[in-house]
Design a protein around this nucleic acid. Structure first.
Lengths: 133, 133
DNA sequence: CTCTGTGCAAAGCGTTTGCAAACGA
DNA sequence: TCGTTTGCAAACGCTTTGCACAGAG
C-alpha cells in the first residue's frame, strides 16, 4: 500500500486505480489541464469518462490534495499540493515550471502599508524560457 | 467628444452608447465580472443582451483597452489597462484592490537564475482586508 | 456484503455565433 | 447611404448530475 493509497483512505476515499493514476500523472507531469489529463488517462483506461476525471479532480481539490493554477491566456492546470511556490510560463512553448521565491519582503510591505493580512501569494511570471529564445 | 470616444475611433470602433457605458462602468468600479457588468448595464439599457457585453469585452481585450484578471477561487474580472500593478483580494468581502509593487528584484533574480526572459508578472495577494478583520 | 465509485447519457451553464433590424459616421 | 453594431435565438463546449452497474474494502 503506497503513500497515495493511504492519503486517499485517510480522507475516506477509496483508492481506485483511476484515482491513483490521476495522482501519478500529476506527479509525473507536474502540471496538467483537464484535457491533457484525460488524454493520458484514456491510454491507461480506455473507457474512462471525462465525468470521472472531473469528479475526482473536484474531490481532490476539496481535500486539498491538489491545487488549481490559473494562468493568463491559458486554461487552468492542476498540480499536487506542495510547499508554497510561484510559476513561470513560457509564452512560446507553454511549459510551466515551479519556482521557489522569497516573497516575504513584498508580503510584509503590503501587510503593514495596507493593513492587509496576507494568507496566500499567487505569482505567475510569463515570458520566454531558455529553450525558446 | 470625450477620451474614450476618441480611443474607440482610433481603432476603427464605433463609439456606441453601450461601449462607452462599459468603459465608464469599468472606470468607476475598477474591476468587474461579466455578471456584475451585465447587472449595471441593464439598468442603463433595459434590452441589452449578454452577447453584446461579451462581444465588446472580447473586442476591448483584443485592442488591449482592458485586461482580464484571473483570481484564485473567484471568477475573472476585467479592468481598464493601466500601468503594471498587482492585486489584493479580500477572502471575506471579495473586494479587489490595485497595488503598485516593485517586483524588479524578483524578476531580475529569475531572469538570471533561470535564464527566463520575463515579460509580465501577475501577482495576486489573497487575505483579509482591514475592514474585515 | 455494503457502500462508494465509475461510465454513460442527459442536463446545465457560460460563452459564442448567425442573422435581421437598428444605428453611427 | 454604407458598414458596423445590437439584440435575439440557436449553437457550442465545458462541466455537472442522475442513475445503474461494477468494484473496493
Amino acid at each position: 500500500m503506497n503513500n497515495y493509497t493511504q492519503m486517499l483512505r485517510n480522507h475516506n476515499l477509496k483508492a481506485t486505480p483511476q484515482r491513483l493514476a490521476i495522482v501519478d500523472m500529476l506527479y509525473m507531469h507536474g502540471h496538467m489541464s483537464i484535457d491533457a489529463l484525460y488524454e493520458v488517462m484514456i491510454k491507461k483506461f480506455s473507457s474512462i469518462s471525462l465525468a470521472t476525471i472531473y469528479k475526482n479532480i473536484n474531490l481532490m481539490l476539496e481535500n486539498t490534495f491538489i491545487q488549481e493554477v490559473k494562468l493568463p491566456n491559458y486554461k487552468s492546470v492542476y498540480e499536487l499540493t506542495k510547499e508554497s511556490h510561484s510559476h513561470t510560463i513560457c509564452e512560446k512553448c507553454g511549459k510551466i515550471n515551479d519556482i521557489i521565491l522569497d516573497l516575504n519582503a513584498i508580503v510584509n510591505t503590503v501587510s503593514t502599508l495596507k493593513n492587509f493580512e496576507i494568507s496566500k501569494a499567487d505569482l505567475v511570471l510569463s515570458g520566454v524560457c531558455k529553450n525558446c529564445v
